[in-house]
Design a protein around this nucleic acid. Structure first.
Lengths: 140, 140
DNA sequence: ATCAATGCAAATAATTTGCAAAAAG
DNA sequence: CTTTTTGCAAATTATTTGCATTGAT
């Protein structure tokens, strides 16, 4: 995996393992904390230097949720076309797959003279349960 | 429009007019330059203070295109549900409307216990013309 | 031994904020 | 006149980078 001319080092291993020990989205800072549990010496700089490697190799997806920092999604390799819906009541983010959307995306792209290479769909919703029973059951 | 307790000032007028003189997406810095054509005295701080007002009133949409700074889309009021496709060859961004996608989004949201409040779809495509005739006709 | 990878701290870039001065109502 | 808004410059936040040192091969 790292055998593309890249050396296997302690900090790198810790960062990669930390990234895939979770199924949740995380920030660079959160990844640093998780990696440091595995290797005390891992530094912020190495996290920031390792993240683009994982993104470019398709193992991690860089996500923008309108916050001031970037998030990383480790579920991309297993579900390459999953999308996100964000609860505007509890801020929790859920993933879903929907083939019909992809078909339409393909069709639209073709009509506009493109071959579809990637997609990113984010929905924002208000919680129906919050409205009916007074509490957002999505909230953990 | 600004009559929600907000004072109509020279810099504000310049910034708002600059924002809607264009149909292109722009950054805060670009808006500053455009606004300064109309009012020399407009400052960066006022641009950054005015942008959230326009976003919250639904006149402008804040967009993330994976760059380090935010972009603003002035076409949102006319086409509230438009989506974007980005040419990965020339980086140009195109807008499109597609009702079928919205229907599916509504359906997915409902199934997951949400009322759809907003959506953001970005496609990335490679240019077919570039492949067939050797130049990307999308490029201006 | 060699050269890539590291940690640190300083640099950068976008955005935000404190504050005294200016302008709107 | 009172209160909001302003421009400026300093502060903040996430991220990147230079460099001497460490560690993998």
């Amino acid at each position: 995996m790292e055998s593309k001319g890249l050396r296997v080092t302690g900090p790198r291993l810790a960062i990669v393992e930390a990234a895939f020990n979770t199924t949740k989205h995380f920030t660079a800072e959160e990844l640093l904390d998780m990696a440091r549990v595995l290797d005390k010496s891992a530094s912020r700089a190495t996290v920031y230097r390792t993240l683009p490697i994982l993104v470019e190799s398709g193992l991690l997806r860089e996500m923008d949720f309108g916050k001031n920092c970037k998030y990383y999604d480790p579920n991309y390799a297993e579900h390459p076309n999953h999308n996100h819906i964000i609860c505007q009541d509890c801020e929790k983010i859920f993933e879903f797959d929907e083939d019909k959307i992809e078909e339409i995306e393909e069709e639209v792209s073709r009509k506009m003279g493109f071959k579809l290479e990637g997609q990113n769909l984010q929905l924002r919703g208000s919680c129906e349960k919050l409205k009916s029973i007074g509490s957002c059951t999505h909230k953990e």
